[in-house]
Computed example of a mutant assay.
Amino acid sequence: MNSVERHQFILKRLQEKGSIHVIDLGKELDVSTVTIRKDLKLLEERQMLFRTHGGATLNNPYTIDRSVIEKEKMQSEEKALIAATAAAMVEPNDSIIIASGTTVLAMARHIHPVGNLTVVTSALNVAIELNRHQHVEILQLGGMMRSTSASVAGPYAETILQDFFCSKLFLGVDGIDPDFGLTTTNGMEAHLNRKMIEVTQKTIVLADSTKFGKRGFGRICGFDEIDEIITDAGIPPHMLKALESMGVKVTVV
């Protein structure tokens, strides 16, 4: 099979399955993975597909900034399962950080504090949600408010964080890519998230399965800086395998 025939075969498989993997294509076409990667690179340059970790897809893996209202309607059932699992990890008399995003907002709605709970958050909607509990002390970070996420970012928020150390950070992300790491659509928010990781004992990422294979504008960190990812059963098997091979604990709900 020549290169043109291979390209036609690859595009046909992509139309049939929606996504393809380098190893599978190599076996089917009886060529090396190096050859397949070169084929995928050429087809991506021609804007016929998008390369992903270990393969390719027809869907654009790069995330865009959406409003909270729009994102809340997406994968709501999956987010509720992830949120309930994360909320159960909050211990009596805990001190935690909750970042921004619709999945961590859903988590805040599932929190039923035992004893006193101290919450540091950049998200105004998270603070309002938790303010209904009598024994929750909330430290709302200050700074420039992002209208799309109802959260703050910037040097004021980062400066306040320097005075605290918490047991857990519950972090929402826009993209999880085995090569690029964890990302969000906003560079300032990514920087604030890194500062949150620095002042926390354990970092727990809350992400529904649509976030895997995606990349946002701002890189938060690599997988060596997080402790656990909580996601739903829709996570692609090859993504789960790749993360576990890197030593990342993945909890599927």
Rank of each mutant, 00 (worst) to 15 (best):
N2T: 05
E5R: 13
E5N: 11
Q8D: 13
F9A: 05
L11Y: 01
L14C: 04
L14W: 04
S19T: 10
H21S: 12
I23M: 11
L25Y: 03
L25R: 03
G26C: 01
K27F: 07
L29R: 05
V34L: 08
V34A: 13
D39C: 03
K41Y: 12
R46E: 15
M48F: 08
T52K: 04
T57Y: 00
N59T: 14
N60E: 03
I64K: 14
V68S: 13
K71Y: 05
E78D: 10
K79M: 02
I82H: 03
S95H: 14
G101H: 06
T102D: 01
T103W: 02
A106N: 15
P113Y: 10
V114K: 15
N116T: 14
N116R: 15
V119S: 05
T121Y: 04
R132K: 15
E137F: 14
I138G: 08
L141M: 08
M145R: 15
R146M: 12
S147M: 13
A150S: 11
T159Q: 15
L169H: 03
F170Q: 07
L171W: 01
D174H: 10
M188F: 14
A190M: 02
H191R: 14
K195C: 12
E198A: 14
Q201L: 14
Q201V: 11
I204F: 02
L206V: 04
A207H: 06
A207K: 07
C221I: 04
H238A: 06
L240N: 05
K241S: 11
A242D: 07
L243V: 01
S245G: 08
M246V: 00
V250Y: 00
